Simulated assay, not measured.
Amino acid sequence: MIRAIISPSKYVQGSGILTNFKDYVDKLGNSFFVISDAWFFNQAVEKIEQGVQGSNIEVIFEKFNSECSRIEIDRLVELSNKNNCNVIVGIGGGKTLDIAKAVAYYAKMPVVIVPTIASTDAPCSSLSAIYTEKGVFSEYLVLSQSPNVVIVDTDIIAKAPVRFLAAGMGDALSTYFEVRACLRANGKTMAGYQTTKAAIALAELCYSVLLEDGVKAKISAERGVVTKALENIVEANIYLSGIGFESGGLAAAHAIHNGLTVLEEMNHISHGEKVAFATIVQLVLENSPMEEIEEVINFCLSVGLPTTLEDMGIKTIIEEDIMKAAVASCAEGNSMKNMPFRVVPEDVYAAILAADTLGKQFK
């Protein structure tokens, strides 16, 4: 049995630290290919150019075309090579960061990750989720290493829409329960190793921080200010969840998330929002104690995360559609295999409907 911890070489978090960008990346190279979200692009140019002043770093900027697909990866790899760059930088949300990691992997360059929202645990992972051009989950790309540097400017994150921070809490919410399931199943992590004690501890800490500081951090984000609670939740969303899931393992919650992507009504729902509901579904699958399910549902309600299908755009439940999502959840290569018991689509179908009913009752 081989255990391993997978993590970035350097993780830096604090308010306003992007202005010191060069201090954290100067040993990686001198020609940076920066991939940014379209909505943050102008700010990315301004902040990165300010952050490299006084250095010999040259910067090329390129907008991300919104979907982490094979076609977009190929386009960006070609551009980075054409411009003779030797470092990839991703600045933006989860899919932007995933595509930056994928581009760096195929271009064989180091990568710097700069999240502008704390909506997922993607920044720290050696993993990219690949989707079709229409946004349907396709596959996980397991990378050869974690990001070289992760820079988290909490001043930027505090000023982002509050929904993103809540979505990050939804993604982080699953970490402890998926790691626990993976441990019980003696399953393997995304990196192909067994769950470590350190990952279990990080996952448990992640969950306790969410319960302690989630509501306070949401209030801080609503006012656009950085508080200790916000700093703690950003660390939980990005670092504790990121290292926890990658070195601890995924299970039903993320498999069910992947299944839910086949439902077009949910195209507007973020990754973390779907994962939050899928966590409730996992607890139903496990027949977890009612007290635990109640705690999770109440947490979701307290920070504005979905607890029902209607919350995610399903106004009318069509049994055939729910079964399609259930079948996709159990597809080969999905993380459902890390549950400590066999799960079939009929089980997932039943758990989705039961979780939906529970969510309605607690409202």
Rank of each mutant, 00 (worst) to 15 (best):
T308M: 04
I352K: 01
C330I: 04
I293T: 09
I318L: 14
E265C: 09
H268K: 15
I317M: 10
E291I: 13
M336S: 08
C330E: 03
M339S: 05
I280T: 13
L305K: 03
D321P: 00
M312W: 06
M339E: 07
P340H: 05
A325M: 02
R342T: 13
V343Q: 00
V275C: 06
H268I: 05
L353N: 04
K324N: 13
K324A: 09
A331Q: 11
N334D: 12
M290N: 14
G272K: 03
N334M: 13
R342A: 15
G304T: 08
E273T: 12
N287I: 01
E265F: 01
D347E: 06
A325D: 02
N287T: 04
E320N: 08
A326N: 03
D321L: 11
M290D: 15
E291N: 12
E346K: 14
T357M: 14
I280E: 04
A325W: 00
E332S: 11
E294F: 09
V348A: 03
I269E: 04
D356M: 02
E273F: 11
M323K: 13
E294W: 07
M339W: 02
E265Y: 02
E320K: 13
A278D: 02
V344A: 11
E310Q: 15
D321G: 00
I269D: 05
A278I: 05
E310D: 12
Q282N: 10
T316E: 15
F341W: 10
K337I: 13
A355V: 11
A350Y: 08
N287C: 06
I314G: 07
M290C: 13
H271D: 09
T308K: 07
G333C: 10
A325S: 10
N267A: 14
M266W: 01
Q282C: 09
N267M: 12
G313Q: 04
V303R: 08
P340E: 07
G304F: 06
S335G: 02
S335T: 15
M266S: 07
G304D: 06
A351P: 01
A278P: 01
V344N: 11
I352W: 00
L358Q: 09
V284Y: 02
V327W: 01
I318S: 11
V281P: 01
E295D: 12
A276N: 07
E292Q: 15
A325F: 01
G313P: 03
N334T: 14
N287M: 09
E265G: 10
L309A: 05
G333S: 13
E265K: 09
L285R: 04
I293D: 01
L353M: 08
D356W: 00
E291Y: 08
G313E: 03
A355H: 11
M336W: 02
